[in-house]
Amino acid sequence: MLEQIIRGKVFPFGKNIDTDQIYPGRFVELTDTADVARHAMEGADPEFARLFSHGDIIVAASNFGCGSSREHAAITLKSVGAGAVIADSFGRIFYRNAVNIGLPVLVCKGLRDRVNKGDIISVRMDTGRVLNAGGETLGLLEPVSDYLLNILRAGGIKPLLRKQLASEKFA
């Protein structure tokens, strides 16, 4: 489900964080989410999975998730409980994968330069504002299309497809 207010601690990353850094290729054979969660961001920061808490927020510069199509990259961040991933832009397959599994991926240009590791930020989905702990606006989210918002609100595409396939069965 998509929360109206996403609040958490910032884990900042740079630009072009590729899927090999988010989830190294040698672990792609793992399929259980608990196993996949253990290797989150291992290629960029081996300490990440240990330090990251449920609800924390990844803030990155441009092209986050570029590279491979591995859905593991989205699954691992969802499985460690990322409240949202916010970046200047995303690799397109990672972006689709994240939306499909209900991981909020949000574009807020320049936010990365305005936050530091450990800052507490709030993302207001109703106003599209990203706020610091003092309530000051750090940036504005780029609007998400209704099509994608519908998928995110449902918690991913699977519940929607379940509904669609069930209705086709009884049509």
Partner: peptide, 18 residues
């Protein structure tokens, strides 16, 4: 174009992709 696993599952189930 490349996609992830759940997009492919959608294609398998429906023959289509957005």
């Amino acid at each position: 174009t490349g996609v992830g696993a759940t997009d492919m599952a959608t294609i398998l189930a429906t023959g289509k992709l957005w």
